[in-house]
């Protein structure tokens, strides 16, 4: 079980969090033309990297904040965690 450092609350067990996918995906802006291809890429296509991955987790049983977690998908090592507002 992972031990995740919530930037708001500190180290907490994984059971307090829920996973939210790739944190580098940016939602296309509202009211902007976008091609089918680009929209499909946004909705469906995700990389599955072996190694470092910046991902979203929500501290659902804690402060309810969405956070960004830099994690190694191979070793589960967690490097740094960021608040939602922090740009990396």
């Amino acid at each position: 079980m992972l031990y995740i450092k919530c930037p708001h609350c500190g180290l907490r067990p994984q059971t307090e969090f829920s996973y939210g996918g790739d944190a580098t995906v940016k939602r296309p802006e509202l009211n902007k033309e976008i091609s089918d291809q680009d929209w499909d890429n946004f909705v469906y296509l995700r990389k599955s990297p072996r190694g470092k991955h910046l991902e979203l987790w929500q501290h659902i049983s804690g402060c309810r904040q969405w956070i960004k977690v830099e994690r190694d998908t191979l070793t589960h090592e967690i490097f740094t965690t960021y608040k939602a507002s922090e740009n990396i």
């Binding site: 939602r27 979203l56 929500q58 659902i60 309810r64 904040q65 969405w66 939602a84 507002s85």
Partner: peptide, 13 residues
Amino acid sequence: LSHLEYYLQLVWP
């Protein structure tokens, strides 16, 4: 609730 929080915290802060 999670869905709303996602958009407020990450997409349209």
